[in-house]
Simulated scan of single mutants.
Amino acid sequence: MAITNTDRTSYFPLIEKRYGEKMSYWYAVMKKLEGKKYPEQIAHLKENYGFSQAHANALVMYSRGSKSAARFSSVSDYYKSLDPKQAKLVKAIFAAIKKKHPKLTLVIAWNQPMLKSGEKYVFGVSTSKNHISIAPWSEKVLKKFAPEFKEYRVTKKTIALPNDWKVDQKLLCDMVAAGVKEKSI
Protein backbone atom coordinates (compact mmCIF):
# COMPACT_ATOMS: atom_id res chain seq x y z
CA MET A 1 0.00 0.00 0.00
CA ALA A 2 1.46 3.34 -1.06
CA ILE A 3 1.56 6.19 1.41
CA THR A 4 0.28 9.46 -0.03
CA ASN A 5 0.03 11.30 3.29
CA THR A 6 3.23 13.16 4.24
CA ASP A 7 2.59 12.65 7.96
CA ARG A 8 5.31 10.23 9.07
CA THR A 9 2.90 8.45 11.43
CA SER A 10 0.97 7.24 8.37
CA TYR A 11 3.74 4.63 8.00
CA PHE A 12 3.31 3.30 11.52
CA PRO A 13 0.47 0.78 10.90
CA LEU A 14 2.51 -0.69 8.04
CA ILE A 15 5.65 -0.82 10.19
CA GLU A 16 3.77 -2.66 12.95
CA LYS A 17 2.27 -5.12 10.48
CA ARG A 18 5.41 -5.77 8.46
CA TYR A 19 7.93 -5.99 11.31
CA GLY A 20 5.65 -7.58 13.91
CA GLU A 21 6.08 -5.17 16.81
CA LYS A 22 4.02 -2.30 18.23
CA MET A 23 5.36 1.21 17.82
CA SER A 24 6.26 1.33 21.51
CA TYR A 25 8.88 -1.34 20.72
CA TRP A 26 10.28 0.71 17.82
CA TYR A 27 10.37 3.88 19.95
CA ALA A 28 12.49 1.93 22.45
CA VAL A 29 14.83 0.81 19.66
CA MET A 30 15.19 4.42 18.53
CA LYS A 31 15.83 5.56 22.11
CA LYS A 32 18.85 3.21 22.19
CA LEU A 33 20.09 4.75 18.92
CA GLU A 34 19.73 8.32 20.18
CA GLY A 35 22.81 10.40 19.43
CA LYS A 36 23.85 8.26 16.46
CA LYS A 37 24.04 9.84 13.02
CA TYR A 38 21.14 9.48 10.58
CA PRO A 39 22.95 6.97 8.29
CA GLU A 40 23.88 4.80 11.29
CA GLN A 41 20.28 4.75 12.53
CA ILE A 42 18.95 3.87 9.07
CA ALA A 43 21.58 1.14 8.61
CA HIS A 44 20.76 -0.33 12.03
CA LEU A 45 17.06 -0.64 11.21
CA LYS A 46 17.75 -2.08 7.76
CA GLU A 47 20.47 -4.53 8.81
CA ASN A 48 19.00 -5.74 12.10
CA TYR A 49 15.27 -5.66 11.40
CA GLY A 50 14.99 -5.75 7.60
CA PHE A 51 13.40 -2.29 7.35
CA SER A 52 12.85 -0.79 3.92
CA GLN A 53 14.45 2.61 3.30
CA ALA A 54 11.03 4.33 3.44
CA HIS A 55 10.02 2.72 6.75
CA ALA A 56 13.43 3.34 8.31
CA ASN A 57 13.38 6.96 7.19
CA ALA A 58 9.88 7.52 8.59
CA LEU A 59 10.83 6.10 11.99
CA VAL A 60 14.22 7.80 12.21
CA MET A 61 12.93 11.18 11.14
CA TYR A 62 9.91 10.95 13.45
CA SER A 63 12.19 10.06 16.36
CA ARG A 64 14.30 13.12 15.51
CA GLY A 65 11.23 15.37 15.77
CA SER A 66 10.23 15.67 12.12
CA LYS A 67 6.54 14.80 12.08
CA SER A 68 5.99 15.41 8.35
CA ALA A 69 7.97 14.94 5.16
CA ALA A 70 6.28 17.97 3.59
CA ARG A 71 8.42 21.08 3.52
CA PHE A 72 6.10 23.17 1.33
CA SER A 73 2.34 23.51 1.52
CA SER A 74 2.11 25.18 -1.89
CA VAL A 75 4.06 25.94 -5.05
CA SER A 76 4.37 29.57 -3.93
CA ASP A 77 5.98 28.38 -0.68
CA TYR A 78 8.45 26.42 -2.79
CA TYR A 79 9.28 29.51 -4.88
CA LYS A 80 9.89 31.54 -1.70
CA SER A 81 12.54 29.00 -0.65
CA LEU A 82 14.60 29.56 -3.80
CA ASP A 83 17.22 32.07 -4.76
CA PRO A 84 15.30 34.82 -6.65
CA LYS A 85 17.17 34.07 -9.89
CA GLN A 86 16.25 30.37 -9.69
CA ALA A 87 12.66 31.15 -8.71
CA LYS A 88 12.34 33.37 -11.78
CA LEU A 89 13.67 30.61 -14.05
CA VAL A 90 11.49 27.86 -12.54
CA LYS A 91 8.41 30.09 -12.77
CA ALA A 92 9.24 30.87 -16.42
CA ILE A 93 9.61 27.16 -17.22
CA PHE A 94 6.22 26.31 -15.75
CA ALA A 95 4.57 29.39 -17.30
CA ALA A 96 5.86 28.40 -20.73
CA ILE A 97 4.53 24.86 -20.38
CA LYS A 98 1.20 25.87 -18.82
CA LYS A 99 0.60 28.37 -21.65
CA LYS A 100 0.59 25.51 -24.16
CA HIS A 101 -0.81 22.84 -21.79
CA PRO A 102 -3.29 24.65 -19.50
CA LYS A 103 -5.00 21.43 -18.38
CA LEU A 104 -1.88 20.20 -16.60
CA THR A 105 -1.94 20.63 -12.83
CA LEU A 106 1.03 22.15 -11.01
CA VAL A 107 1.52 20.43 -7.64
CA ILE A 108 4.16 19.86 -4.99
CA ALA A 109 5.28 16.23 -4.80
CA TRP A 110 8.45 15.00 -3.08
CA ASN A 111 8.95 18.64 -2.08
CA GLN A 112 9.40 19.65 -5.72
CA PRO A 113 7.04 21.29 -8.25
CA MET A 114 5.58 18.78 -10.69
CA LEU A 115 3.08 18.86 -13.53
CA LYS A 116 0.42 16.18 -13.63
CA SER A 117 -1.87 15.01 -16.39
CA GLY A 118 -4.73 13.46 -14.46
CA GLU A 119 -3.03 11.28 -11.88
CA LYS A 120 0.23 10.84 -13.82
CA TYR A 121 3.32 13.00 -13.46
CA VAL A 122 4.67 14.32 -16.75
CA PHE A 123 7.27 16.93 -15.81
CA GLY A 124 9.16 18.14 -12.76
CA VAL A 125 11.84 20.55 -11.65
CA SER A 126 14.33 20.39 -8.82
CA THR A 127 16.98 22.87 -7.80
CA SER A 128 20.46 22.80 -6.38
CA LYS A 129 22.90 25.62 -5.75
CA ASN A 130 24.47 25.74 -9.21
CA HIS A 131 21.74 24.46 -11.51
CA ILE A 132 18.17 23.34 -11.93
CA SER A 133 17.18 19.89 -13.13
CA ILE A 134 14.20 19.17 -15.32
CA ALA A 135 12.62 15.73 -15.48
CA PRO A 136 10.15 14.56 -18.14
CA TRP A 137 9.13 11.53 -16.05
CA SER A 138 9.89 9.16 -18.90
CA GLU A 139 13.20 7.62 -19.90
CA LYS A 140 11.85 7.25 -23.45
CA VAL A 141 11.00 10.97 -23.67
CA LEU A 142 14.31 11.94 -22.08
CA LYS A 143 16.23 9.80 -24.56
CA LYS A 144 14.32 11.34 -27.49
CA PHE A 145 15.05 14.92 -26.38
CA ALA A 146 18.57 14.42 -24.97
CA PRO A 147 20.26 15.51 -28.22
CA GLU A 148 18.57 18.92 -27.84
CA PHE A 149 20.37 19.31 -24.51
CA LYS A 150 23.77 17.94 -25.58
CA GLU A 151 25.72 20.82 -24.01
CA TYR A 152 24.20 20.04 -20.59
CA ARG A 153 24.51 17.11 -18.21
CA VAL A 154 21.86 14.51 -19.04
CA THR A 155 21.36 11.55 -16.70
CA LYS A 156 18.93 8.63 -16.89
CA LYS A 157 16.13 10.77 -15.45
CA THR A 158 17.06 14.46 -15.53
CA ILE A 159 18.69 17.26 -17.45
CA ALA A 160 20.81 19.72 -15.45
CA LEU A 161 20.45 23.28 -16.74
CA PRO A 162 22.41 26.35 -15.64
CA ASN A 163 20.64 28.96 -13.53
CA ASP A 164 20.86 31.40 -16.44
CA TRP A 165 19.30 29.03 -19.02
CA LYS A 166 17.14 30.82 -21.60
CA VAL A 167 13.73 29.12 -21.54
CA ASP A 168 13.00 27.35 -24.82
CA GLN A 169 9.20 27.20 -24.76
CA LYS A 170 8.86 25.09 -27.90
CA LEU A 171 11.37 22.50 -26.73
CA LEU A 172 9.80 22.22 -23.27
CA CYS A 173 6.27 22.00 -24.68
CA ASP A 174 7.27 19.37 -27.22
CA MET A 175 8.88 17.34 -24.43
CA VAL A 176 5.80 17.63 -22.22
CA ALA A 177 3.48 16.79 -25.14
CA ALA A 178 5.48 13.61 -25.76
CA GLY A 179 5.19 12.73 -22.08
CA VAL A 180 1.45 13.36 -21.97
CA LYS A 181 0.97 11.26 -25.09
CA GLU A 182 3.01 8.40 -23.62
CA LYS A 183 1.11 8.49 -20.32
CA SER A 184 -2.27 8.42 -22.07
CA ILE A 185 -1.51 5.27 -24.08
Rank of each mutant, 00 (worst) to 15 (best):
S117I: 01
S24T: 14
L142R: 08
A160H: 15
N57E: 08
A2W: 10
S10I: 06
L33V: 04
S68G: 10
E21G: 00
K143T: 15
V29M: 09
A2R: 15
A92T: 00
T6H: 09
A178V: 08
I93Q: 00
R18V: 11
I93N: 00
G20H: 15
V167W: 01
Q112H: 09
Q53L: 02
V29Q: 14
A135V: 07
S184W: 04
S74Q: 09
E40S: 14
N130W: 05
A178F: 07
P162I: 10
N130Q: 12
S133C: 13
P136D: 03
H44E: 12
D7A: 14
L89A: 03
P84F: 02
I132Q: 06
Y79H: 10
P102Y: 01
N5F: 00
M23R: 05
W165L: 07
V90Q: 05
F149H: 12
T127M: 04
Y79A: 02
L89G: 02
A177P: 08
Y25D: 03
F145G: 03
K120E: 09
L171K: 15
K17I: 09
K116Q: 12
V107T: 09
V141Q: 05
K140L: 09
A160Y: 10
V154Y: 11
S66W: 09
A177F: 04
S184P: 01
M175A: 06
V75F: 12
C173W: 07
K17R: 15
K140Y: 06
F12A: 11
Y49C: 04
L82M: 12
K31A: 15
Y78K: 04
K120I: 05
F72L: 08
P162E: 11
F149W: 12
L171V: 04
Y19C: 06
A177V: 06
A2Y: 13
Y19G: 06
R8Y: 02
K156C: 03
K157Y: 07
R153F: 03
K120S: 08
N111Y: 05
D77P: 08
I134M: 00
I132R: 03
E139D: 13
D174I: 07
A2L: 11
I97H: 00
Y62N: 10
V107K: 13
A54P: 01
W26Q: 06
E119K: 15
H101M: 06
F51P: 02
A69F: 07
L172A: 05
K157P: 01
I185F: 11
K80E: 13
I15A: 06
L59N: 07
P147V: 07
D77A: 15
Q86V: 12
K31I: 01
A58W: 02
M175Q: 10
S63W: 03
S24N: 11
S24M: 06
P162Q: 11
K36R: 15
E40D: 15
K129M: 06
A43H: 09
V154P: 12
N48C: 07
A70V: 05
I3T: 08
